[in-house]
Amino acid sequence: MASTREIRRRIRSVRNISQITRAMEMVAASKMRRSQQRVLASRPYAERLEAMIGDLAALQLDPDSQAAFPLLAHREIKKIEVLLVTPDKGLTGPLNSNILRRAGRFVLEEAEAPVQVVTVGRKGRDFMIRTRQEVVAEFSNLKDSVDAAEILPITDVIIDDYTSGRVDAVYMIYPKFVNTLTQAPTVHKLLPIDPPEATGTYNDYIFEPNAKEVLNNLLPRLVDTQIYQAILENFASEYSARMVAMRNASENAKDLVSELTLTFNKARQTQITAEVSEISAGANALRERG
């Protein structure tokens, strides 16, 4: 059995660890609340933007107008771009490995053409480089207070790769925030835009200044909004996963401390018993001789 001093040292180190994990849990919890609010607050905009495009989809599907809007045009798929959105940091329980496994499966099995990768977040970048994928651009160290304007460079890279013909389809992979305990790795097709089901009840919209101008603004905005949304989902997922992971760690540490304390007390008692019996044995021996 370990000596009491060793056990005491282990208890102390477990306590220290639990202090750190508890602090991280609290930090993640407050960031989680904010990022969850942001992701929920930004969903209505994305939904209405999609609905608006859905309203217009019925009007814009004749082949002529499709040719005028490259973001709608389907081409033969020879090259695919993957936009992988992941956290920068670890200590998020199974979140990172889940999203990376999903991305790996997409690249190796599901993609019907060779893939090039754009990453947002260090974990995704490191993974793609380690597995020798073709990483053409990477963005990392985004702040969780990121606003829509700050992600425009990402959209620019994606849209430019697509319109210039370097890639023929773009998929985005990110951890969708479902709730605090659940984050779902999600694959979403960004480009070409498949117009949502035509929902329009009206088929004679007036456009100002004109249809082309409006759609040429609306379509990139949809891509932009979806990427922004995915980045917010990613932050909410990251902090939720980290808070849960750290809470588990703190609880495990607590269990460990109480287990170790029990072992420590037993060891101490055994030691005392041993000492007492040694002393009384010694005393007995002296008495017998005398």
Partner: peptide, 14 residues
């Protein structure tokens, strides 16, 4: 500037 009253014709603008 544009003023929109109820029962306006369907319209989309930037």
């Amino acid at each position: 500037m544009m003023g929109i009253l109820p029962t306006h014709a369907p319209l989309v603008t930037t």
